[in-house]
Structures are given as C-alpha cells and as structure tokens.
C-alpha cells in the first residue's frame, strides 16, 4: 500500500509541494493536475468562486476513488487536495498527483480520478458574477 493523502483546506494550494510529497523511490513519474478558476464559463464572466464541501463524506469518497484507482492502474501513490472557500480567478482549486513506476499509468489514473471526483465527491461551487450568483449543479 503506497502513500495516499486527501485534504480539504481553505489555504492556497502549493502544487509543487503536493506533487513532491507523493514521490517514492520505486517510481519514475508523477502526473499532477492543477485545476484552477477560469474567468469565463458559458460566456459569462466570473468574479470569484466559493467552494463548499460535505467534508467527512468528501474525504471518504476521495479515499474510495484512490483505492479504486490503485486497483485499476499500476500506480503507487495518490494525493488529492481540494481547496474550499473563496477563490479568485487563476487560483488552484484542486490538485491530483499520481506517482507511478511508468508515466502512462499515472496519466490514465489522474484523468480517471478527476473525472470521478467531479461526479461523486460532495463538493459544490458557487459562481459569483458582477450581477448575480449561482450554485453550479453537476451533470
């Protein structure tokens, strides 16, 4: 069982620091997703986002996803960190780092993890515009 860690924090995320924490000697590659706040969504300009989570369930779901990824792909370590609270344009909202002996599995697992996170981990974002705000509902 490799190193796994899952965090929710209101503090700014240091992508490089998170990625370095999952590097083990037996691995050759870490793939890291840096997801950040986009200015335009569906043609509308966002001023900032607010993220909220059902924290204990979100952490459990992250752990479940990482375990499933380890079963499915040849990977060693996984970190999933999501920021909560108010985020400005360009700030990192989510970091997923996957370390693996070889890069292909790390790329595939990282893509699978972000897709599943956006589908199942109970975190929501509110988009705040100059003239209103809306809680985004996933698909």
């Amino acid at each position: 069982m490799g190193l796994m860690f899952f965090e929710l924090t209101i503090d700014p995320l240091d992508v490089g620091e998170i990625a370095r924490r999952v590097v083990p000697e037996e691995c050759g590659a870490t793939v890291t997703l840096d997801g950040y706040v986009r200015r335009f969504t569906r043609g509308r300009e966002t001023e900032y986002l607010v993220y909220e989570a059902y924290k204990p369930m979100a952490l459990k779901e992250m752990e479940r996803l990482a375990a499933a990824a380890k079963d499915e792909f040849d990977i060693s370590n996984v970190a999933i960190v999501h920021r909560l609270g108010k985020l400005r344009i360009g700030e990192t909202s989510v970091v997923i780092s996957v370390a693996a002996p070889h890069r292909r599995a790390a790329f595939e697992a990282c893509e699978w993890l972000i897709k599943e996170l956006k589908r199942t981990v109970p975190i929501w974002k509110k988009e705040v515009y100059a003239d209103g705000e809306v809680w985004v509902e996933g698909e």
Partner: peptide, 8 residues
C-alpha cells in the same frame, strides 16, 4: 440531501 456535485 444535495444537488449533483460540482467540485474540481
């Protein structure tokens, strides 16, 4: 009870 999630 919550809506479809929208993290990421």
């Amino acid at each position: 009870v919550f809506t479809a999630v929208s993290g990421g």
